Simulated assay, not measured.
Amino acid sequence: MVNPDTVLYDSVTASRSGKDEEKPKFGIGQKVKLIKEIVNDGTYPHSPIGTLMMPQGAVGYIKSIGEFLQVIRVYEVHFLGVEEAPVEIVGCRENELEALEDYRDEVEEELEYMRKHREEHYKKD
C-alpha cells in the first residue's frame, strides 16, 4: 500500500526536466555523493512506491550514462556499502549528485600521450 503523504520525485514534470546540457556534468568512474534521498517512484518493481532506495549522503561511482525520453540524462550510479538500501545501483539526475573528485578522462589522456610520443618519435630533422 502506498502512503498518500509520500512526496515522489516526478522526473518528467520536475522543474529541471528540460533538455540537459549538451555535455554530461559527470564522467564514468567518477566518485559522487547523493545530495537528495532517492525513493521508488514506481520504476523499481520489487519495492513499494515510496520505499527509500538510497539515502542522502551515500557515496558511489558513475557506472554509465543514459537518457530517458531523449531529453533527461540519467546516471547509473553504483553505491557501495549502503546497508539500508535494497539495491546497489540507482539511476540519478545531475541535480541529485555532487562530485567528490575531479573527473579524469583516462582514454583522452592516453590518446594525448600517444600523440605526443608519435610526434617525438617520428620527428623529422
Rank of each mutant, 00 (worst) to 15 (best):
E96N: 05
T51F: 10
E101C: 06
E106I: 05
K31C: 09
F79K: 01
L80N: 15
L34T: 00
M54G: 04
F79W: 08
L8I: 07
L100N: 09
I35H: 12
V77M: 14
K116M: 00
E106K: 14
V39T: 13
E84V: 12
L111E: 14
D125Q: 13
R73V: 05
R115N: 11
F79N: 02
H46K: 14
C92E: 09
P48G: 00
I38Y: 10
G81Y: 06
R16V: 04
N40L: 05
N95T: 06
L111N: 14
H121M: 13
E109Q: 13
S15V: 01
E37Q: 06
G27D: 08
G29Q: 07
P86D: 09
D41A: 08
I89T: 15
N95G: 05
H78T: 04
M54K: 10
E21T: 03
V59R: 00
I65K: 14
P4R: 04
K123R: 14
R73S: 05
L8V: 06
S47G: 02
D102I: 00
Y75F: 06
T51L: 10
C92D: 10
Q70P: 01
A85S: 15
L52T: 03
P86K: 12
R16Q: 15
R104V: 08
A58S: 15
K23P: 00
C92N: 09
Q30A: 03
E76Y: 11
G81R: 11
S15Q: 02
P86F: 11
K19H: 05
N3K: 06
T43S: 14
V90T: 13
A14H: 15
Y103D: 06
Y75C: 08
C92R: 02
E88H: 10
G57C: 09
H78D: 12
E94C: 07
E21I: 01
K123Y: 05
K19P: 02
Q30E: 11
L97V: 07
V82M: 12
R16P: 03
H121P: 02
L100C: 06
E119I: 01
E83H: 14
Q56S: 06
R104C: 11
I49V: 15
E120T: 07
K123S: 09
D20K: 05
Y113N: 08
E21N: 06
D102P: 06
L111F: 07
G27W: 03
P86Y: 13
E67D: 10
I49E: 15
D10E: 04
V107I: 11
D20A: 06
F26H: 11
F79S: 02
V87S: 02
K23W: 12
V12A: 11
